[in-house]
């Protein structure tokens, strides 16, 4: 697959995740840009953590989880049974919501990852401790007490220690699951500064429910709602000019309403001339303010959205049903032609 070498570290294709029978992620497809900060935003319970943990397969630990679709990390499908999970995880550092220091000294926390991967050389371990504690901006705070228990550190220091520990295994990607939510403002600020400093070297994916944090840090934004990928794109675009109604409502802090579907059109079984006729008919019948759902094949989706028929309508949402079909939900605007 030489042609794909230049592609992004993390590519997600039609990823669905279920816990038992409840679906928490629906057909997510997305490319995470390299060496940028990508923020995953959305109300709590929408599947942000699940998406993040599917990148390093920590999701496997959840009871009753089933995953379909693919996540490619450097062109390797990580859900392929042949994938070495320990190697995959080595390439991704994780910062969790509450810092989780290991029950050992500061020094041992930093070298833990190196040790589990078989590093024994004392000099290398010492060098790693200094280097990564410096990268996490805490070397000066702890250099005189490296061999005391990490549990005695303040919670902000613990989170930076977790960062150093994650960096020490030499990852390409840093995953952060609301890493500042348990911290005081100053510690949170320090972690944010670290992310900004590290983004030239690492691909950073950051789950956050703090919009201001996303504005401060993110280059790219992914908005999830109830397990659906609603919108994703460069941060300025998504945060300032969201395309879809739900994104807009979320950003403005409004209640996110499910539109009430008044008409529905299934284009899947129709072929070209009939489909166009059916479209014209349904658009004609639709009244101002009414909402229409069109089910369409993936191939025709872009053509459909760009078609002049749709011009007087607001696309509220595009939902992936499965790998091949999508739903487009649109509302007829004021001033559109109607009968």
């Amino acid at each position: 697959m030489a042609s794909e070498v230049s592609q992004n570290h993390i590519r997600v294709r039609d990823l669905s995740v279920r816990y038992g029978s409840t679906r928490v992620l629906n057909n997510i497809s997305i490319d995470i840009p390299d060496k940028k900060i990508t923020a995953i935003i959305g109300p709590s319970g929408c599947g942000k953590t699940t998406l993040l943990k599917s990148f390093n397969r920590l999701i496997d630990l959840q009871e009753g989880v089933s995953v379909s679709g693919q996540v490619f990390v450097d062109d390797e499908d990580i859900y392929d049974p042949k994938t070495e999970i320990t190697h995959l995880r080595k390439r991704m550092g994780l910062l969790s919501q509450r810092p989780q220091v290991l029950p050992m000294s500061i020094y041992e926390n930093v070298v833990y990852g190196l040790r589990v991967h078989g590093e024994k050389s004392k000099e290398k371990l010492n060098a790693a401790v200094e280097r990564y504690l410096k990268e996490a901006h805490m070397w000066h705070e702890v250099k005189d007490r490296l061999h005391t228990s990490a549990a005695k550190l303040s919670i902000g220091q613990q989170q930076r220690l977790c960062l150093a520990r994650g960096l020490a295994v030499g990852p390409e990607v840093i995953l952060g699951d609301e890493p500042t939510s348990a911290l005081d403002p100053i510690s949170a600020e320090q972690i944010e500064q670290r992310f900004l400093a590290l983004k030239d070297k690492y691909t950073i994916v950051l789950v956050t429910h703090i919009l201001r944090q996303a504005r401060r840090l993110a280059d790219y934004v992914v908005f999830l709602y109830l397990g659906n990928l609603i919108e994703h794109g460069p941060a300025e675009e998504v945060l300032n000019n969201p395309r879809y109604a739900k994104t807009k409502a979320y950003l403005e802090g409004r209640f996110i309403e499910e539109p009430e579907i008044e008409k529905e059109l299934d284009l899947i079984k129709l072929t070209f001339p009939e489909s166009l006729k059916a479209l014209e008919k349904v658009f004609k019948e639709l009244k101002v303010g009414q909402v229409l759902r069109i089910v369409s094949g993936e191939k025709n989706l872009q053509g459909l959205i760009r078609s002049p028929l749709v011009a007087q309508h607001t696309v509220l949402e595009i939902k992936k049903r499965d790998a091949l079909t999508s739903e487009v939900i649109m509302q007829k605007n004021e001033g559109g032609y109607s009968i």
Binding site: L61, S96, V116
Partner: peptide
């Protein structure tokens, strides 16, 4: 706490290493 396991596993440790060391 489950998070302690997760943080060890997230660094690429095996379950046995996690059990033994953490």
């Amino acid at each position: 706490p489950f998070g302690v396991r997760e943080s060890s596993l997230a660094l690429g440790a095996t379950s046995w290493q996690t059990t033994k060391k953490v």
